[in-house]
């Protein structure tokens, strides 16, 4: 099983290091870097899954564990699909590097792939950091759910049962 603490600082630093290099410098080791980017992407997703109490899968989807890990995260929480394309882009860049016969171009793909991986790290890492505050597109949701939504839901139900007077007693103001 992967390490328990989210390793985002270390991953981001490594990605920044790759990004800071000129494609020509990355070119000779492009294949190795491409594989490393995939591995880093997997670590990012593993951290998310572990933080949510899920054992990361060792399975592959479409030939890539990264995609299987993403699928695993999204199965539990559909909003995790917000990073679906980043994962697919990472795989795409890996394939581009593997298929490239031109070293300099491969170096460029590595650098762009690192930028995609960095976005994934920032997105997932940022979300974990503020997980007390919400979901991907609804940063205030759990706070609201705990403090306000229960009142409104109760009020909406009360109104459905007994009309506006019941709803008023339950505190509904919004839908009126």
């Amino acid at each position: 099983m992967a390490e328990a603490s989210p390793p985002f600082a270390e991953i981001s630093a490594r990605l920044e290091w790759i990004i800071a290099h000129d494609p020509a410098e990355l070119a000779p080791q492009a294949q190795l870097y491409a594989a490393e980017l995939l591995a880093l992407g997997e670590r990012i997703l593993e951290a998310w899954l572990i933080a949510h109490g899920i054992q990361p899968t060792e399975a592959k989807s479409e030939g890539f564990r990264l995609l299987a890990l993403h699928r695993q995260g999204a199965a539990r929480d559909p909003t995790f699909n917000a990073c679906r394309e980043s994962c697919r882009e990472l795989v795409y860049h890996y394939n581009l590097v593997r298929a490239s016969s031109e070293p300099l171009q491969a170096g460029r793909w590595v650098r762009l792939g690192a930028m995609v991986a960095l976005h994934l790290a920032l997105f997932v890492g940022g979300k974990l950091e503020i997980s007390g505050l919400g979901e991907f597109c609804c940063s205030s949701r759990p706070l609201r759910q705990n403090e306000v939504c229960s009142t409104i839901t109760t009020a909406t139900q009360a109104e459905a049962r007994g009309g506006p007077a019941d709803a008023d007693r339950a505190g509904l103001q919004l839908a009126r």
């Binding site: 990073c83 394309e85 882009e89 762009l112 792939g113 930028m115 976005h119 940022g126 991907f136």
Partner: peptide, 8 residues
């Protein structure tokens, strides 16, 4: 490659 990525 980031055309649909999150803007935060």
């Amino acid at each position: 490659p980031l055309k649909t990525a999150c803007c935060g």
